[in-house]
């Protein structure tokens, strides 16, 4: 068990949830999503996000449209589908439950 690996796994676990959350208020393209995630120090390298986005899109949670970019190549703007929104709602509930559970457990541990 290496600390780095465990950390990476924990981050990867919540990554899908975070990508959906980033897209909840407004549609965004990859660089914008990356920026948010990098600012939150959730992502170290960019590579991980591409397979995830494709997978979310393939399972019908995300959809995208092409938009011209002033500087680079055309951009893929990702947005939540209806089922994506429902999915996110479910994940939110789970996350809150999980957070409570984890804090209960960890606080109990520190008390001992």
């Amino acid at each position: 068990m290496k600390l780095e690996n465990t950390k990476a796994q924990m981050r990867k676990g919540v990554l899908e949830f975070c990508i959906l959350s980033v897209l909840e208020p407004k549609d965004a393209y990859v660089a914008e999503i990356l920026e948010t995630l990098k600012d939150a120090k959730l992502l170290v390298v960019e590579g991980t996000i591409y397979p995830l986005l494709t997978r979310l899109k393939n399972s019908g949670l995300l959809e995208y449209r092409w938009e011209e970019s002033p500087t680079g190549p055309p951009r893929k703007y990702y947005g939540l589908t209806e089922s994506g929104k429902l999915f996110l709602k479910e994940l939110n509930t789970t996350w809150n439950a999980l957070q409570t559970a984890v804090s209960v457990v960890t606080q109990n541990q520190t008390k001992k």
Binding site: V30, E46, L53, T54, N58, T71, P73, P74, R75
Partner: peptide
Amino acid sequence: NEQGTSEIIADIEARIAELFSE
């Protein structure tokens, strides 16, 4: 093992192109 590898590669290439042009 991933599905839609070519699409992912296309996304990655687009991102690299973007980073290049920056």
